[in-house]
């Protein structure tokens, strides 16, 4: 696979998009008066997208455009699936960028693909949003990509205690009619729920 690689290139993508949306949704409501004394709410980190394989024959402009487009798809998924208003019951909107077949599967796996497990939390913020992209390029045609993700979140539960969540794995993407969509996934969610085992004295 040596021919598929190229020097790693790191792009902090969608910082404005994710951080702004998360800040608005987790921080303050439109009714709140600027300047009013409030407890500062830590903001979500920005999504970091890195091309790690397959894009070495693309020029800089095309590569940046691809990272932006895929970053937008992932940002949309993260914001709708893990961030936003809490508590809430609605997470299906996170699958809008999935193909119809993948969205059907995702609806079945909604507890492993979203923050549905912590739906009673009062807030969720992202503490790590990393995505490494491997592209499938045939000649000059960009056909698809794998996004290897390492996402981490912190939910603030009803009792005020923080609960960490992490999502690791792969999202599979394809380009069609100028738009990228997710046609598959293979991810593992650690929902931070503890299995406590006491050791008696």
């Amino acid at each position: 696979m040596g021919g598929m690689g190229h020097p790693r290139r790191r792009v902090t993508h969608g910082a404005a998009g994710v951080a702004l949306v998360a800040g608005v949704l987790a921080g303050c409501s439109p009714d709140e008066v600027p300047g009013e004394q409030q407890t500062p709410t830590p903001r979500s980190v920005a999504l970091r997208v890195e091309s790690v394989s397959g894009a070495d024959h693309l020029d800089e402009e095309d590569r940046t455009a691809l990272e932006t487009e895929i970053g937008d798809v992932l940002s949309h998924y993260v914001v709708r699936g893990f961030l936003g208003d809490f508590p809430r019951r609605e997470f299906v909107a996170s699958f809008e960028s999935f193909t119809s077949g993948a969205a059907r599967h995702a609806a079945r796996d909604i507890e492993q693909l979203t923050a549905a497990r912590v739906q009673d939390a009062t807030a969720v913020r992202a503490t790590r949003l990393d995505a490494d992209l491997s592209f499938l390029v045939d000649g000059q045609d960009v056909i698809g990509a794998t996004a290897a993700v390492r996402f981490a979140f912190e939910a603030t539960m009803e009792d005020g205690k923080p609960r960490p969540l992490s999502l690791r794995g792969r999202f599979l993407l394809e380009e069609g009619a100028g738009e990228w969509s997710i046609f598959g996934y293979d991810v593992a969610l650690d929902d931070g729920a503890t299995l406590e085992t006491g050791v008696a004295p």
């Binding site: 077949g101 507890e111 492993q112 794995g169 293979d186 991810v187 593992a188 650690d190 503890t194 406590e196």
Partner: peptide
């Protein structure tokens, strides 16, 4: 001196391809 508690978290995997 006192009971110890070991906390484990659950990891669940999901995969699908359209």
């Amino acid at each position: 001196v006192r009971p110890a508690a070991i906390s484990l978290t659950t990891v669940e995997r999901a995969s699908a391809v359209d």
